[in-house]
Amino acid sequence: MQPTQRRLLFIGIVALGLAWTLFSADKKGNSTAGLIPAPQAGFLAPDFTLETLEGESITLSDLRGKAVLLNFWATWCPPCRAEMPAFQQAYADYADQDFVIVAVNAIQQDNLAAINEFQAEFGLSFPIVLDNDANVSRAYQVRSLPTSFFIDKKGVISEVVIGGPIAEALIRSRIEELIK
């Protein structure tokens, strides 16, 4: 191919690329997934209402305006045990800065006595809710424990962490980003 032909071809390719960029611009807002509920980063966190150990109801959508760490756990799960002290420490440090932890217990694979003992052992002060019929675990497609969802103040999931234990520095850095 002659140099002039090649240059024309290259200019043509770039012009085509520019035309495609403009043609495929997202005028309809197709790439904003934040309004659809799904257990994935970039999507609205699926809403739920569950009861705490004390019998109070917690609805996720009522927590809008706060950064939320939604943690699925069970007492028999070693990484869940390992990450709880870091969660408690972060909760104690950030609870007054629009941050809350909601610990969803997979009660179908656990028991109430063990949960109470666990809460006392680690001195957990954040709410623990019971997923009695596992509907919330299903809605969040929890495949292994622990699984954690960082949710921003608008209720949109910013990150999903499958497995654990999560490093304390990771919890703190994610919270700092979410409460900005």
Binding site: A86, Q89, D93, E159, V161, I166, A167, E168, A169, L170, R172, S173, E176
Partner: peptide, 21 residues
């Protein structure tokens, strides 16, 4: 460097295997 305060509270995490950091 981005989150020095987070590591000040948990300095052991500097060598954590966590890929999120």
């Amino acid at each position: 460097a981005r989150f020095p305060e987070a590591f000040a509270s948990a300095p052991r995490n500097i060598v954590s295997l966590n890929p999120g950091l």
